[in-house]
Amino acid sequence: MCVLAGCDAGAWLPRRNAGPAGVLSATSRQEPALSGQGRWLASVVERGGRATLLLQEQPSGRVVQLRHFQNHQPHSSPSLSWNGRYVAALVQQGNQRLPLIEDRATGALHRLPLPADRTAVRLSLAPEGRRLAVQVAQGGQWRVQLFDLSNLLEPDLPGGIALQGGGLDTPR
């Protein structure tokens, strides 16, 4: 393996490009996030000049519509739970960037309010859906805060329900 790829270049591992971003003909794709076993890929693409969350089944690339991420662009920092039941990302609301979590099984939307003196920069949803980590900017400094979601979300565990389509939404 070292001979083929060159030791300095690092190991060659099986790989593929995530491919075109479905029907959106996006040319650039950022901030990838896979569900626990790789069935779902969330990423951020330009749609009408606005950074928009895109959820696709892998490896087909089939785009699944999300109910609560149609507006409030730019979207950023997507994160998925084990079976892709929960989709979390940052959205724009007024002057603030705030985390939203969509439950694809029920269609429910969960918001994380933040004090006005801080804005969210990045997030990470624990695969089981028990916790959310949010990087915020406050007073010119970055901080990371953890939030407990156990009173809000049912756990999404490995081997749990496998969503076939877009939850309650119709697949494109």
Partner: peptide, 19 residues
Amino acid sequence: RQLAVQVSRGGLWQVDLVQ
């Protein structure tokens, strides 16, 4: 078992999936 990485190639951002 797999990672997703955002890669800059020729002025575009792409996503690679690596097993």
